[in-house]
Computed example of a mutant assay.
Amino acid sequence: MKSENIEKFNDIVGTVLGHLYARFPVPTIIDAELIGINTACEVVEGPGGVGQIVDRDDEDERFFLHTVSWLVSAGFAQAGHRTSSAFINVVLTSKGLEVLKAYPSSLTAGPSIGDQLLGASKSGATALLRSTVNEALSLGCKYISQSVSF
């Protein structure tokens, strides 16, 4: 049985990579609302009954932001900058695009990894999304190891 964090990570990675693949090469904003997390601030009662706007402390939103940070640091995407709740001007790197244009090892034709991620994230096919993310990350690791020389 996989860790709940790994499954959540795979779900986010699949949705984000599919989103970036569909918009390539146009930079886009990536925020937690992409995966259904409400990022709106809350209005709470402040001193004297006056409304006060505060940021929510949302564990799912933090997990989302850490996952996208990992995609950037692992070289799948690049981002112009990050705000407290979003990444701005995000686009696939050449490595990310190469991985998503590849065909899964079980196929020689048909939908690419990127097309499968996009379709699975739109249709809610969680099992396909997770298995395709595993394929994409494995392929990405192979590309990294081939480009690193000691």
Rank of each mutant, 00 (worst) to 15 (best):
W70K: 03
R56C: 15
R56K: 15
I88L: 07
F24I: 04
R56E: 13
G18S: 05
T126P: 03
L137N: 02
G80S: 08
G48E: 11
K8Q: 10
Y103A: 12
V72C: 03
E7L: 08
S112Q: 06
F24V: 03
E7R: 13
T67C: 05
R56W: 07
G96N: 00
S149F: 11
L128R: 03
G110L: 09
V72Y: 00
K142L: 09
V133L: 03
A109Q: 15
G46W: 10
Q116E: 11
V16C: 12
S123T: 12
V133C: 02
G75K: 00
I6M: 08
I35M: 08
Y103Q: 13
L92I: 07
S85R: 14
P27H: 01
A125V: 04
T83G: 10
T28M: 08
S106F: 12
E7H: 05
V99T: 03
G51Y: 14
T108R: 14
T93E: 00
Q78L: 09
V68G: 00
R56S: 14
S145I: 06
S105A: 15
P104N: 04
S145P: 01
F87W: 04
G51R: 09
H19L: 04
S106C: 12
Y143S: 05
T108N: 12
K8H: 08
N10E: 10
S85K: 14
L139M: 08
V68T: 02
A32Q: 12
S145H: 05
Q116G: 11
Y143A: 06
A102W: 03
K2E: 13
D57P: 03
D55V: 11
L65M: 14
E98D: 12
Y143C: 04
R56Q: 09
L65S: 05
S147P: 02
P47A: 15
A120T: 02
A86L: 14
N10D: 06
E61M: 10
S121T: 02
I53C: 15
G49S: 05
I113M: 08
S84Q: 10
E45H: 06
G14K: 00
W70G: 01
N38H: 10
S147R: 08
A102P: 02
R23I: 02
G124Y: 01
A74P: 03
F63E: 13
E45L: 08
V13P: 00
L129N: 10
A22P: 06
L92V: 07
V16E: 04
T93N: 02
S131I: 14
I35F: 11
S106T: 09
E61G: 07
R130V: 11
G75Y: 00
S105D: 13
G80N: 12
A77H: 01
E61L: 12
Y143P: 01
S94R: 09
G46C: 13
F150C: 12
K142D: 13
A74E: 10
D57S: 07
N134E: 15
Y21N: 01
A74N: 13
F24D: 06
L107I: 07
G124P: 02
S121L: 02
P25N: 11
N5Y: 11
F150T: 14
I113N: 01
T108K: 09
L129H: 05
S123E: 11
L128T: 14
